[in-house]
């Protein structure tokens, strides 16, 4: 896909969102509406300018967005990995999730050193445990193994 085409689409989408935002913000009581309404109106105008700029660029700028298959695959893995972490943390606790998912994501991404995965995960979790639990004593979600043992 041409970069200019994508930018035009994003700019038009952003313009629509800005108009919607301006309408929503204009409904706030007077004093609270000034800034957000003004900003959204300005953003709508700027988005229009951006859309026109990239629309013009479409004819002479042949810059294409290239993403290699392996790069796209890794991006998808890291994005799903981040989501998996956020889902797992409340259920299993931070450290249990980290000790499983951090090396797990790295493995799926393509890092295959068993020693590196094991040592890296243990040192990483150990440092975080020391910092957040021992030093800072922050209240974190209960670890699943802790709950099971209790």
């Amino acid at each position: 896909m041409q970069r200019a085409t994508l930018e035009t689409m994003v700019a038009l989408g952003l313009m629509g969102l800005s108009v919607a935002g301006a309408v929503h913000a204009s409904g706030f009581p007077r004093g609270s509406a000034y800034l957000p309404t003004t900003v959204f109106v300005a953003m709508a105008i700027l988005s229009l300018v951006w859309a026109v700029q990239s629309g013009i660029a479409h004819f002479h700028d042949k810059d294409r967005l290239r993403i290699e298959r392996v790069e796209a695959r890794r991006l998808a893995i890291i994005a799903f990995g981040a989501l998996a972490l956020a889902v797992a943390i409340p259920a299993f606790g931070f450290f249990t999730s980290f000790i499983v998912l951090v090396p797990g994501i790295a493995f799926v991404l393509g890092y295959r050193s068993a020693r590196g995965l094991a040592v890296g995960a243990l040192v990483f979790v150990g440092i975080l445990y020391l910092f957040f639990v021992v030093i800072l004593n922050r209240p974190l979600p209960v670890e699943i193994w802790h709950a099971l043992l209790a």
Partner: peptide, 25 residues
Amino acid sequence: MPPLLLAPMIIAMSTIGIYAINNSM
């Protein structure tokens, strides 16, 4: 240091750091 191991570590560190501020998922 392997970047493929560092990337999930950065995300993990960010999640615990942000959670610890307000205890908020």
